[in-house]
Structure formats: structure tokens, C-alpha cells
Design a protein around this nucleic acid. Structure first.
Length: 572
DNA sequence: GCCGTTTTCGGCCCGACTGTTTTCAGTCG
């Protein structure tokens, strides 16, 4: 089960959606959305809060506190159940289609009784949408495009969701008597940006107790396969999880096999065959005698093939085996290498935590420096002004150049306009220690225009980092149509860093683009883009992406000591 | 439904874009 805060966040968000679909008071729906965000980003676990403490959470008043309490006591909220009875669950899935919001989803349900993305696709094919007021030809086209986008990542879940599920399962199984080891494998261990099926590997002499505990998990909605070596369940959230149990002496070979990727394994097996060996999930064997050569650890298996251990994030058959053979594997950047975070928000704009709360949480991570980069005025909804920005800077300066061992940087996240310009005149920009510049609008301009736009932003002497460079949202929005190689050249030429945004819904730049940018000589900033104290921990996903792009510490400006980063910021 | 150094009632996140309208609703960041 997910943390109580996340469960309540999801329920409140669902209630807000259902209110919007049924045409309830928009401000009321908004109130639930705000409360959902606050609860999700609240550092204390709801399970341990009393009634008074619940109401101290921002945007939670009496009504919502009562609903949270009701959920804690009964496992459901009557008001939510009542609306669920009015609106089939598929209607919310339709809302997940880009360009379809609560009003369109509601109209499609009311007028055509459409309750799933599949039905919607059929209805468009049969030209039935023409009968609904406000739905024209272009609307149908946009919906089809959105459906395709959704289908491309269909069934795959975000890395943070898979990570949380895996952590819960391995914690339960690891405590089962007889369990020697239990760890996630598969694409999650490789930090792919989304996960299809979750693979969990356990080592034990007797698999029965583990399989029994696995199928008895509270999250197990269905048991798909039940055997002695492999059992598969589908969770209540719809994620398929495969558990494989192997004897402890086979652990290394099995972990290697089930971590993949398939292409990496195929290449390893080919190497084995050429050496007169056979590699399987049970070990590395001599073909003639059948004698087992290695299986206990991954290191043993790789070593028997004449290779050093290869980090899982590199196992995509993108040249890692050749590099390993030459002894030229990169010295990958690790989470412990990060000395700071250069893109974060506070409640001055759309964060849910105060400046002081964010600084405390960052200091607890042991950072040597930390940048506060709230939104700039052109993102109008944030209502930023020069006065508010300067007041924040004063508060930051009062805390001193260094606070709890952290050097404090006052930055901003600028908006790159369609021509490549940014908020604020040059003299105001010069007052910042650090400027991140990101695209937040005009996503549909053509390739030449988008490329020119990003290149111009790189050429701005006040811009240090381009934030979430493609602006993609996994499963919801493709990236900008842009000639990335031209942008990479501009970054290398101007000394502008590209961000690896660690938010699990972004992971932008993605791994392959990172590898390409590195070949152009680009530097990177791995940033959380945190909007709450908890999201500072998202850096692990950005690190995974950086590793998949073969980055070492030298490539990542926020792994550098302050003296070197300061020079980088100044020389810009 | 939440909130308050202008308020315990009356506001609340603003502006641009798109596609459908012929004056504007819906969606998005």
C-alpha cells in the first residue's frame, strides 16, 4: 500500500475531478485540488496526526480534515463513493487524454455514454462526435493524437510508482523466514523511465513461504500465475508483478538474467558460446562437461566472461560490453556525488513548502550549495513580481551566504518566450546568482522556430541552465519538435548546461539525448525541480537517467565543488 | 471548501491559445 498521504492525495484529486465532470462549483473543485497537493507534499505521515494537526496542513479545513479522518477509520470516503456511483471510472481515464478535460469528458459521457478511451476511439471512427455540440473535426483529430500518445506508454507506470511498489513488496518478502535476499530486477533496476512489468527476485531454499506471502499481499488483486519458481500478480493499481525465487547459489546468474536488458543478455550469451560456455538464469556452464563455472554473484559471472561488473543502468547493448572489454567503462555519477540542487521551488510560487522548510530539508541531505529558483512573472498564474522576488532574496541574504553548511544561491526559473527571450531586463537578471530558463508555452511551433528559440536562450549571457529542455511529460505530452543537435552545439559553444529534470513525470532530457549531448561536449545539471521537501529525493531518478546517458561526475555541474561551480556561473 | 496585517464573507491563479463559435468555453501551464 502506498503511503497514506499519497492515498489521500489521490482520493482528493479524484473527488476534485468528479466534481468538475459533474459540473460542481469550480472553486470547490479547486479547493480539493489544492488540498490534494498539500497533503501529498506534507512531510509528516497523516497516520500519526491528530485532528488539530490535520487542520494545520495548508488548504485543509474542517470538511477535508473530517474526510481524511473518515478514510483513516473506514478505508473510504462516503462523498467520494457517492460521486463514483454517478460517474463510471472510465470517464476519468478519458480526462487523462491530452486536450480532453472535465467538460469534454462529461459531455462525451452525457451525450454518447462513452466510458472508456476505446469507446471514444470507436465513436470518432464512426463520426459520432459530430452530434455533440462543441465537437468539430479538429477536436476529433486532437483527441486521436492524444489517444496515440497515451497508447505509446499505455500500461507502463512511472519510475516512482514502480519504485514505491517494489519497496513495499521487497520489504514484506524480505521478512519472510528463509528469504536470503530479495531485490527488484528488470527495467526498474536499470532505471528505465517507465516500467511495464515489475520483476522481483528472491533467493531461498524453499520458495513456498515466499510465494504464499506474495499472493497474500494486500495489494494483490489477481493471481495470474502461481508456481514454485515464478508467480505473477496484478496489483490493485493494475501493475503486473512477477516474483521469481531461486536457490541462493544461483542468485548472481538469475539477477543478471532478470535484470536484462534482453539485448544485453543476448550479447553476453553470444560471448559465452564463443568461449565454449552456456549462460542461463541458472549460471554459466561448460558446454562439454556441464560443470558450473559461476552463478553466485553477478561479479563472478561477468568475471568468468572476462568482464568487469557492468552497472545495470548501462545494460542496454549500447556499447557497454565492448567498453567493458576494453576496460573503458565510464566512472558513473552517483547520488552521493551530488553537492547541491540548482532548480527548486517554494510556496512563493507553486511549491507547497516554505523557504525555510525547503532549506532545512536540503541541508539534511548534506548539500554544499542550494539554489531557490521560483517562477518568473511571465508565467502569469504564479503572480510573481519583482517586489516578491527581491523580498525573497533579502530573506535568503539574511540567512547569510552560508546556512547550515550550505551556500545559498538566489535563482529563478525564467520562461523562454516564442522568440527565445526571457522575463525581466538584463539588469534584473544580473542580480541572480543562477538562472534556469525553461519553455512553458507555445509547444506547437515548428521545428525551425523551436530550435531558434532554444538556441537564443542558450546565447543569453544570463542563462546558466536550460530547464526540462524538451518539456515532454511521460505519457501525456511528447517533446518539442526541435533539432536537438543544433541546441547541443549551442550549449557547448556558449557554456550553457542542460538540465536532467529528475521529476519522474519528466526525466527530461531523456537518457539517449543525454548521451548524444555529452558527445557534443555539453555539461548537465541534475535537478529535482522540487515543489515539496519530499520531492528533493527525486534526484535518484535523475541520477539513473544520467547514468543511462553514461555521465560521470565531471559532466555534472552540481557534483562539482563550489569553487568550480562558482567559476562556471561567473564565466557564463 | 479554504482563508484572513484591507475581510468571518466574498473572494479565490492569470493569460494565451484553440476550435468552435459569431462572442466564448475549454484546456493548459
Amino acid at each position: 500500500m502506498a503511503r497514506l498521504n499519497e492515498q489521500v492525495e489521490a482520493l482528493l484529486q479524484e473527488y476534485a475531478d468528479l466534481l468538475s465532470i459533474t459540473g460542481g462549483d469550480a472553486y470547490r473543485a479547486r479547493a480539493y485540488e489544492k488540498a490534494a497537493r498539500s497533503v501529498g507534499g506534507h512531510p509528516a505521515d497523516l497516520a500519526g496526526l491528530d485532528a488539530k494537526e490535520l487542520r494545520e496542513i495548508p488548504n485543509v479545513g474542517k470538511s477535508i480534515a473530517d474526510k481524511i479522518d473518515e478514510y483513516r477509520n473506514t478505508g473510504s470516503i462516503q462523498a467520494v463513493e457517492a460521486l463514483r456511483a454517478q460517474v463510471p471510472t472510465g470517464v476519468r481515464q478519458i480526462m487523462a487524454i491530452p486536450t480532453v478535460g472535465p467538460k469534454k469528458a462529461g459531455a462525451l459521457y452525457r451525450d454518447l455514454r462513452i466510458t472508456s478511451p476505446e469507446e471514444l476511439r470507436e465513436a470518432i471512427g464512426a463520426e459520432r462526435l459530430n452530434d455533440v455540440p462543441g465537437f468539430g473535426e479538429r477536436t476529433a483529430e486532437n483527441i486521436l493524437h492524444g489517444l496515440d500518445l497515451l497508447r505509446r506508454t499505455g500500461g507502463r507506470v512511472r519510475l516512482d510508482v514502480a519504485t514505491a511498489t517494489a519497496a513495499e513488496i521487497t520489504a514484506v518478502l524480505g521478512a519472510v523466514p528463509g528469504c536470503v535476499r530479495c531485490e527488484p530486477a528488470g527495467s526498474l533496476r536499470r532505471f528505465r523511465e517507465t516500467v511495464g512489468d515489475l520483476d522481483i527476485l528472491a533467493a531461498a531454499e524453499d520458495s513456498d513461504p515466499l510465494m504464499a506471502a506474495f499472493t497474500a499481499l494486500p495489494d494483490a488483486a489477481d493471481v495470474l500465475v502461481h508456481g514454485t519458481t515464478k508467480t505473477s500478480i496484478r496489483t490493485t493499481a493494475g501493475l503486473q508483478v512477477d516474483l521469481r525465487v531461486v536457490p541462493p547459489e544461483d542468485w548472481g546468474a538469475a539477477l543478471l538474467y532478470f535484470t536484462g536488458s534482453k539485448a544485453h543478455n543476448v550479447r553476453l550469451r553470444t560471448m559465452a558460446v564463443k568461449a565454449g560456455l552456456k549462460l542461463s538464469e541458472y549460471g554459466l556452464f561448460e558446454v562439454g562437461s556441464g560443470a558450473r563455472i559461476a552463478s553466485r554473484t553477478e561479479q563472478e559471472v561477468y568475471a568468468a566472461l572476462g568482464l568487469p561488473w557492468i552497472p545495470p543502468t548501462l545494460r542496454e547493448d549500447r556499447g557497454e560490453i565492448q567498453a567493458a572489454r576494453r576496460g573503458e567503462l565510464p566512472d558513473l555519477v552517483e547520488e552521493a556525488d551530488l553537492r547541491g540542487d540548482l532548480h527548486t521551488h517554494t510556496d512563493l510560487t507553486d511549491g507547497v513548502a516554505s523557504l525555510e522548510e525547503m532549506l532545512d530539508a536540503a541541508a539534511a541531505r548534506g548539500y554544499a550549495y542550494y539554489a531557490v529558483t521560483d517562477h518568473a512573472p511571465n508565467l502569469a498564474m504564479q503572480r510573481m513580481t519583482e517586489e516578491k522576488m527581491l523580498a525573497q532574496r533579502s530573506r535568503l541574504r539574511e540567512l547569510g551566504p552560508s546556512h547550515r553548511g550550505m551556500r545559498l544561491l538566489h535563482g529563478t526559473e525564467l520562461n523562454i518566450d516564442p522568440d527565445g527571450g526571457v522575463d525581466w531586463p538584463a539588469d534584473v537578471l544580473a542580480g541572480f546568482d543562477l538562472c534556469v530558463a525553461s519553455v512553458h508555452s507555445h509547444f506547437r511551433a515548428g521545428r525551425a522556430a523551436q530550435t531558434r528559440r532554444l538556441v537564443r536562450a542558450c546565447e543569453n549571457p544570463h542563462v546558466h541552465v536550460i530547464g526540462h529542455p524538451t518539456t515532454r511529460l511521460l505519457g501525456r505530452r511528447g517533446g518539442l519538435d526541435v533539432d536537438l543537435d543544433t541546441v547541443f552545439r549551442a550549449c557547448a559553444r556558449t557554456g550553457t548546461a542542460l538540465e536532467i529534470n529528475s521529476a519522474p513525470e519528466r526525466l527530461d532530457l531523456g537518457d539517449e539525448a543525454v548521451a548524444r549531448a555529452k558527445r557534443h561536449g555539453v555539461r548537465f545539471a541534475i535537478d529535482s525541480d522540487a515543489h515539496s521537501t519530499l520531492q528533493l529525493d527525486n534526484q535518484r531518478y535523475g541520477i539513473g537517467t544520467a547514468q543511462r546517458g553514461w555521465l560521470g561526475g565531471d559532466d555534472v555541474i552540481n557534483s562539482w565543488p563550489w569553487s568550480r561551480l562558482r567559476r562556471f556561473l561567473h564565466d557564463r
